[in-house]
């Protein structure tokens, strides 16, 4: 295979490439936060009025620990009762699986073609 000679990249082009990567990185990580799509928030489904340790489902040992940590039943109310919602749709799960499989398929496919070129140039046919 003929030896591939890469073009020389100018400083402005190098800088532009770095900016593109940084913008994509910050965007992918912060956009879900900005759009409030980050998920994983806990909610209190059934609040307890005038909470006591018993009403919050805490036995004597558990209540004693909370008190040692500086909590009262009122201040510990949300901490104790908040729960995650693990319900999900099968459609969303299938989309996630599809996205992951597509991603690995894409990079393995492109990598293979690039790799053959590398091996060919390094070792010859």
């Amino acid at each position: 295979m003929a030896h591939y000679i890469p073009p020389k990249q100018g400083k402005a082009s190098q800088l532009f490439d770095v900016v593109v990567l940084v913008v994509l990185t910050v965007g992918s990580l912060f956009v879900p936060l900005w759009l409030n799509l980050a998920g994983a928030a806990k909610t209190v489904a059934s609040p307890v009025e005038n909470p006591t340790w018993e009403a919050l489902g805490q036995n004597a040992a558990q209540a004693a620990k909370y008190e040692a940590l500086g909590f009262t039943p009122e201040t510990a109310h949300d901490l104790i009762l908040a729960r995650f919602d693990y319900s999900f749709s099968v459609g969303a799960l299938l989309v996630m699986i599809l996205v992951i499989v597509l991603y690995y398929f894409l990079i393995l496919r492109f990598s293979e073609s690039e790799y053959r070129e590398v091996i060919s140039e390094k070792f010859g046919k």
């Binding site: 992918s28 879900p32 799509l37 998920g39 994983a40 995650f84 999900f88 969303a92 996630m96």
Partner: peptide
């Protein structure tokens, strides 16, 4: 996916 599916797909 159960808690952070959006981040997973975004990433």
């Amino acid at each position: 996916f159960l808690g952070y599916g959006t981040q997973l797909v975004a990433m």
